[in-house]
């Protein structure tokens, strides 16, 4: 795409590649806490229970295709960040002792989303402005155990989401 040569765009990509790595590190830290404190560590031990939980999973297929469009991919990344921002409230309730870690993650996600939004606006691409306060209703769980497993899968899905987003940004940076 014609963006590849643009100096500002490259700076945006370099910065937000590092930012995404930081966020992935934040999520990994939370996953370690869930493993250490809730003893929920291996996804393949929880597949049966997962079938009973409706866990948010943000689509990112626009960033998968070899010839993806930056605009649609960026929009999907932002939409996904918004969905996971809401689901983090579930994690906050699970890990009261680690509110700081969750708050850092939420601040980083909000910043990454607005960084992408500003870059899209700089490129005259259409953008959506999400309300700062998340209005989506929190998922309800039929038991404390399901709530914990739900939290585990939200983090696992979000980590996969970030890996895909990271590969998309890296792909753009390599053009």
């Amino acid at each position: 795409t014609e963006l590849s040569g643009d100096q500002d765009f490259q700076l945006f990509l370099q910065r937000n590649l590092e930012f995404t790595r930081k966020i992935r590190g934040d999520v990994a830290a939370l996953q370690r806490v869930v493993c250490d404190t809730l003893q929920l560590c291996k996804e393949d031990e929880l597949l049966l229970v997962r079938q009973h939980l409706d866990i948010a999973q943000a689509p990112l297929e626009q960033c998968h295709k070899r010839t993806f469009q930056a605009e649609t991919c960026f929009s999907q990344i932002r939409a996904g960040l918004h969905i996971y921002q809401g689901s983090l409230a579930t994690i906050q309730a699970l890990l009261p002792g680690h509110a700081g870690l969750v708050e850092t993650l939420q601040l980083d996600m909000a910043n990454l989303s607005s960084n992408i939004q500003q870059q899209m606006e700089d490129l005259d691409l259409a953008t959506v402005t999400y309300p700062t306060e998340n209005q989506d209703p929190l998922p309800t769980f039929s038991s404390h155990f399901h709530h914990q497993v739900g939290g585990f899968f939200i983090l696992a899905n979000f980590q996969r989401f970030l890996e895909t987003a990271y590969r998309a940004l890296r792909h753009l940076a390599s053009l």
Binding site: E45, L47, L48
Partner: peptide, 20 residues
């Protein structure tokens, strides 16, 4: 401690219930 209730499924041990 956490007490886990597990079942076998497709050759894997599935955690299906828990009590603290």
């Amino acid at each position: 401690a956490r007490l886990w209730c597990c079942v076998e499924w497709n050759g894997t041990k599935q955690r299906v219930g828990m009590a603290e």
